[in-house]
Simulated assay, not measured.
Amino acid sequence: MQPVLAFDVYGTLIDTQGVVDELERRLKTPSSAQEFSRRWREKQLEYSFRFGLMGAYVDFAECTHKALLFTDRAMQAGLSENDCDHLMSVYAELPAFSEVGAALSQLKAAGVRCVAFSNGTEEAVGGLLSKAGLTGYMDDLVSVDTIKRFKPDPAVYAYLRTRLEARPEHTWLVSSNAFDVIGAKHAGLKSAWVRRRSDAPFDPWGIEPDMTVTDLEAFAQRLLDT
């Protein structure tokens, strides 16, 4: 039976560091753009975890905005309200990683069912995929916003399986985010970790991905060769 592939979006299909060029133009110290982007992303995820644990769901864009404001304060960057509004608009149009289109095209041609599975809202993720030219490769878009929970809550992965009408052993979560991979494995799904940085460590929880690859082309090749 063909697997169903659920692709994380932010950091897996879409490059969250794609905002760095704009940060270099907006920050008083352009050389701090990489660090600002990294801290913004980390705080974005932290806020989603915290809101989830509090049972006080807000959508992912709100986590992203609050994380931007925090990073501005923490780094004393002095961004104006207009700067922040502009950076949020840039975040809504982030680019895909260079190999993603070719990898998804290969999977689609092989008849593999592919879906986008994200903490972002359907509107936000749909916009990103459309801008990146990836919409046609996806059979569905599954957003946690429907159930007002965030990854790695087990309810999110249960909702994914229900939405796809797929058995856990036939459902793959493909993500560059280790917490997402661990969450999926804990919920009984198969998982692939896209280790985009060679020095990226995996959490030592005793829960390992079924596959580790350097990018999505490597994943597509390995999956189709099995």
Rank of each mutant, 00 (worst) to 15 (best):
V90Y: 11
D85C: 03
R113W: 11
Y91S: 13
C84S: 05
F179D: 06
D83Q: 10
A110F: 11
I147Y: 08
S175H: 03
P168F: 01
Y157A: 03
L160M: 12
P152T: 15
E165Q: 14
Y91Q: 10
Y137M: 00
S191A: 15
K148Q: 13
T146D: 00
Y137P: 12
L189T: 00
E165K: 14
E122H: 06
D145L: 10
N177P: 06
G126P: 01
S98I: 03
I182W: 00
A187K: 09
A109Q: 08
G188C: 07
S191G: 14
G188W: 12
T121I: 10
T135P: 00
A178Q: 12
Q106P: 11
G133N: 07
G133M: 04
H186D: 09
R161I: 09
H86R: 11
I182L: 10
V112M: 10
L189P: 03
V125F: 10
K131N: 10
D145C: 08
S191H: 09
P168K: 08
L129F: 09
S98P: 06
G136F: 12
H170R: 09
G136C: 09
L87A: 05
V115K: 02
A192D: 04
D140R: 06
A155K: 14
V125W: 13
L164S: 05
E123R: 10
M138Y: 08
M88N: 02
D140E: 08
Y91N: 12
D83A: 08
D180A: 04
M88H: 04
A166R: 07
T162F: 10
E122W: 02
S191Y: 04
L128K: 12
A116L: 11
Y157K: 04
S130Y: 08
D139W: 06
P95Y: 11
W172F: 05
A184C: 05
A178I: 08
H86F: 15
E169G: 06
E93C: 01
F150P: 11
L128H: 14
L129N: 04
T146N: 04
F117W: 11
R167E: 14
E122R: 09
S175L: 11
G127K: 06
L107W: 08
A158I: 07
L134P: 03
G126T: 08
K185H: 11
E169K: 05
N177I: 14
K151D: 04
D83K: 09
V112I: 15
A184V: 04
V144K: 05
V174Y: 02
F150Q: 12
R167D: 13
K131W: 07
A96F: 11
D153K: 12
G111T: 10
A187V: 15
L94M: 12
D140N: 03
T121R: 09
L134D: 05
C84R: 15
S143Q: 03
S130H: 14
M88C: 03
V100H: 06
V90P: 10
S130V: 05
A187H: 09
A132V: 01
V112W: 10
T171C: 11
S118V: 07
V90L: 07
R167F: 13
E99W: 04
L164H: 06
P95E: 06
E93G: 00
L104P: 03
C84M: 15
G127R: 07
D139C: 03
D140W: 01
N119Q: 07
S105D: 13
S191L: 04
V142N: 00
N119C: 04
A158V: 15
D153P: 02
G183Q: 11
P95C: 05
H170G: 03
A116M: 12
L107V: 12
S176T: 01
L189N: 01
